[in-house]
């Protein structure tokens, strides 16, 4: 209840100030006893996960284990049927306003980029700031160029997504999410659709982001990346969290039989 007494912060104030640690709430994402079904199929079973601010979490597991579905529940691209999901102090329920509020604060990067092909790179980046944040066009473009420089492709600003390589497109997608100044970033297999040559440039961008203290949930099988940046690695199977540990321990001494089997399959 004490939370409601705190002054309400406006998006504007947040944009001006430092991005992190502006609220006293130290929990970025809190998932408690969450279940989800696709029709009769129980895809997510009793998910409990607390993500602290600035924490980096890598989620791995066999395909169909529910990894993507879980992180898609966090910005309500998927609906859960039981349990609670609280994102940045806002509980996700059917309230559309709450959903919009959460989506403004949570950036997402997809396996297949999902850039808007009919808009230039710059327009892809400024669309949401202009329409959702009501930012003036000039300011939005400045912000967009800032992030394009950070992902090292400012020269592509006026091209269309179809003219870029996969790695460049994924970096644009990351910049697009960052333009909304999100507090949390979700990555859904960001390198799985890329040619091997382009994986590194995307991972480098993500490493930089992690070093700056972004709260990140990453579904990925890039184990090198997990070792390098993750605070915790989570292994999922059959819709459940099987094992969670800090990366060193996770890779060196997996506890569960299923985890051991999985790691033996992907680490050769």
């Amino acid at each position: 209840m004490s939370e409601t007494m705190q002054p309400v912060e406006t998006p504007k104030a947040r944009r001006g100030g430092p991005k992190m640690q502006t609220t006293t709430n130290e929990i970025a994402v809190d998932i408690v006893g969450m279940h989800k079904w696709y029709g009769d199929f129980h895809v997510l079973r009793d998910i409990n996960l607390q993500v602290k601010r600035s924490e980096r979490i890598i989620i791995c597991g066999p395909s169909g284990s529910g990894k993507s579905t879980m992180i898609r529940c966090i910005n309500r691209l998927e609906e859960h049927q039981q349990g609670r999901i609280v994102v940045d102090g806002v509980e996700l329920a059917d309230d559309l306003k709450k959903i919009d509020e959460v989506r403004r604060e949570v950036g997402m990067v997809f396996q297949h980029f999902n850039l808007f092909p009919h808009l230039t790179v710059l327009d892809n980046l400024t669309l949401a700031p202009i329409w959702v944040r009501k930012m003036p066009k000039r300011e939005a473009e400045e912000v967009a160029m800032h992030y394009l420089k950070r992902v090292k492709i400012p020269e592509q600003a006026n091209k269309y997504p179809g003219q870029l390589s996969g790695g460049q497109q994924q970096r644009v997608a990351i910049a697009r999410a960052l333009c909304m100044s999100p507090k949390i970033m979700l990555f859904d297999e960001p390198t799985s659709a890329l040619d091997p040559e382009m994986v590194k440039e995307v991972l480098d961008t993500m490493v930089e982001l992690a070093q700056e203290g972004m709260t990140m949930l990453v579904v990925s099988h890039e184990m090198g990346f997990a070792r390098q940046v993750a605070d915790r690695v989570i292994f999922m199977d059959a819709g459940q969290i099987i094992e969670a540990n800090e990366p060193k321990e996770f890779f060196a001494h997996p506890q569960h039989e299923r985890t051991k089997l999985f790691l033996s399959q992907i680490l050769h």
Binding site: N75, L77, R103, F110, F116, L127
Partner: peptide, 11 residues
């Protein structure tokens, strides 16, 4: 993916 991309940026 276009719907999801649009929703994810908050439109």
């Amino acid at each position: 993916g276009q719907y999801e991309g649009a929703m994810a940026v908050g439109l």
